[in-house]
Design a protein around this nucleic acid. Structure first.
Lengths: 228, 228
DNA sequence: GCCCTATGTTATAAAATTGTTATGATCAAC
DNA sequence: GTTGATCATAACAATTTTATAACATAGGGC
């Protein structure tokens, strides 16, 4: 994921702090939203689905800990990284914060450089999560071994050519998910190559022959999906 | 957004390249402006607020990287997509480019087909930002799963063809809201296609068959609405 | 109640999309 | 350079989706 695609939400009741943090993170290229209390923070979190939320502990309306709990229990925000801002020495809030589901905390006073490097390190987790194709993957009776570029289906070993392997690998990375043709082209062929319209079909056909027809479902007008 | 409404800004100091790129992108239906150096590029970016900027790295007056930074820090241009043109092998400029806030880069020599496909893929992000349909949506007993392109109604799985899926998706995006026929045509069919007057009715009928009659209410003279 | 218009319904035709096969190009290994 | 495998493409077939036309029906205004 690129920096511009990363959304950060800042929640603090002090406009000055909000502005400083926003400036520093925006300069780094992140997309930054702000909220000035817990209530607004929860709302914006639901709407914007940020990747990272920086939450002040002490706030009017709804404090950071309560807000954090609310956010954690919202659908689609479980994977969001939440970090608290706390005054140095406020030990209690750190403990309570971790209880509420925080990932980290930053102590005030905030030094911009520290903030930025902390944010980067927190976001590194996201990046690692993004699409780490495992070396060996099991999908039903199919074992995909990326290291050796081979596939074992129901005990039988199959050697697949590269394109077929990548295509299978992509489709099985999320069974049942429909991969649009554009996405398949992007991930398997790359944007540098422009291939004809029937190319994907042909490769799908080969996979169907080798792995089994029923695993590859066509969704007309959209793309293909792998089913178990 | 329609293709005709998408503005692209090309910045390069070689008139020939400018012309070729402009020709190819214009043929695709985009609105294309050009600038012949960094200074002019930044000016035009501010004035035209393009959605996508294609920026040559090597230019007199102000190089692409500096221009990119300037553009990134301009109000209202944070969301603009910026992509660089670099000579193959200029690794340094790619790195510096990403630091400056670029989203992508295209290597010279430029193949028109590659350019167009890259532009399309970059602009797809814009579209997704525009009206982000949630991947999975629950409306009463109906679950609409955009990722798998399937609908589960009261536990039963239903596969819908694309138009029906999009129509259902639109109507359920705001239950009880009446969607005028013109709006439905616009969103599901697009403004380029012209279809007959009974087409929507037929599709509504199929949805009624598959999902349940009572969910789709006709508002005579206006359109249709989805009710729970 | 009657008429008129908007919508519902169905069958069928048209269009769009995908499946299949054969063939030639490309690339890497030898 | 030759060989064999992989890959892309074209041409056609098969399939599914979508549009249309033609007629039926329903509901509001008079």
């Amino acid at each position: 994921m690129k920096k511009q695609d990363i959304r950060i939400l800042l929640v603090d009741d002090e406009p000055d702090i909000l502005e400083i943090l926003k400036y520093n993170l925006s300069s780094e290229g992140y997309q930054v939203s702000t909220a000035k209390n817990g209530v607004e923070g929860v709302e914006k979190a639901k709407k914007k689905k940020p990747h990272l939320i920086i939450l002040d502990v002490m706030m009017p309306e709804m404090d950071g800990i309560e807000a954090c709990e609310k956010i954690r229990h919202t659908d689609g925000l479980q994977d969001t990284i939440i970090t608290f801002l706390t005054a140095r020495g406020e030990d209690y809030s750190q403990v309570a914060g971790f209880d509420a589901g925080a990932d980290d905390y930053i102590t005030k006073p905030i030094k911009p450089k520290v903030l930025v490097s902390k944010v980067k390190s927190l976001l590194r987790r996201l990046k690692e999560k993004e699409d780490p194709q495992p070396e060996i993957k099991k999908v039903g009776k199919i074992v995909i071994n990326r290291e050796e570029y081979k596939v074992v289906n129901d005990g039988k070993e199959i050697i697949l050519p590269r394109k077929e392997f990548e295509l299978l690998s992509l489709l099985t990375s999320k069974p049942d998910k429909v991969f649009k043709r554009e996405v398949i082209l992007d991930k398997v062929w790359g944007q540098e190559v422009v291939v004809g319209g029937r190319t994907i079909d042909v490769h799908i056909r080969k996979l169907r022959e080798k792995i089994g027809d029923h695993h590859f479902k066509t969704v007309k007008g959209v793309g293909y999906k792998f089913v178990l």
